[in-house]
Design a protein around this nucleic acid. Structure first.
Lengths: 190, 190
DNA sequence: GTCTATAAACCGATAGAC
DNA sequence: GTCTATCGGTTTATAGAC
């Protein structure tokens, strides 16, 4: 049996991904999670910001494991890179362009308006890059190059999510995937 | 003397870029532009969505000219690409990470919630890619490769804005710029 | 821990004087 | 075209019964 707090966090993470922070009301989180409004404040005394911070951290950690699992145990980094973007395109199509990055929308909203939440989004991105660079390095890529390639890959993925959600088409993501794979191959000396 | 309608659009575009759509109130647009609330509805009878659509189109066109002017008359595309990202990094630093993409925040907010505004953001991105590809093609790049490179460049730029605004650092943008320049060089056979 | 009622402020939108 | 007053609804947040 899933606890009330977990259901609140899960519902919040989904709504933040699809509608952003300002576009998501606590009433909506309450009804979607099946938890009373009072329960939200019971588990998150700091109110909306407190809840959003937790939801972003949990969603960021989930997405990290998704990335991590995908690249773990790979032998061909070039092939893995192209497949990674193909997977992102497939998820976009399967969810009618709703499920993309769980952090990006809120990150852009709060970057200039809420320093506490901005720091949370920065921490999530930093952890993604750290762990991704670690995986690349384990596969024989020099630490510096690994970190650069992961940074560019994540940036391109985020830009791809943006272009594809706006256009309701995955064409851009596939183009981006092929070119990022080419970049990885080039920088690995192939 | 600048007209009221122009001041409203300008104020709206700036607020949408920094705070997003749901985070920006009409009252705030009214006070920031110096126009009465009634004037907003006089010029934009369709209300907030009507005004937002116009502000996005105008801001998108301005940014298009910025990109267009930067790449026009260039001889070295590789050098231009790296300089383009350096310029983006400089603007972020000069504005304390407030001025980045005028479309991205709203695009992510409305992608799953407001189809009319989603289409506006899609049109802006499409025009950026069309014009950028045209410029690249004029410099001797084959139309297909030109379109691919511009798509990846814009995606990487958007991802760079996201990572840099969250981290309040331009490190990622410079890494991305160097690697995108390397990709352009590689795909141009250099 | 869960729930409802409600406060206080704010939202988008409208009416109507000037 | 400009401005103010205001409507109806929603927001975040709190109080307090159970």
């Amino acid at each position: 049996m899933k606890g009330t707090k977990e259901r609140i966090i899960e519902a919040t993470a989904g709504l933040l991904m699809r509608q952003g922070l300002a576009g998501t009301g606590l009433k909506q989180i309450s009804s979607q999670s099946g938890a009373a409004l009072g329960s939200l404040y019971h588990f998150f005394p700091g109110g909306k910001d407190d809840l959003a911070a937790d939801a972003l951290r949990v969603a960021g950690r989930s997405y990290l494991h998704l990335i991590d699992d995908y690249f773990t145990g790979r032998t061909d980094l070039v092939e893995a890179t192209e497949g990674f973007f193909e997977g992102a395109a497939a998820v976009l199509e399967a969810t009618d362009y709703a499920d993309a990055c769980p952090i990006a929308t809120v990150a852009l909203e709060v970057a200039s308006t809420n320093d506490m939440l901005r720091q949370v989004t920065a921490d999530v991105f930093a952890e993604w890059i750290d762990v991704g660079a670690q995986r690349f390095a384990e596969m024989g890529v020099s630490p510096d190059v690994a970190r650069e390639l992961v940074t560019v890959t994540i940036a391109a993925l985020e830009g791809g999510f943006l272009l594809c959600r706006a256009a309701k088409s995955t064409d851009a993501m596939r183009v981006i995937g092929r070119n990022m794979a080419a970049l990885v191959a080039h920088r690995l000396g192939r």
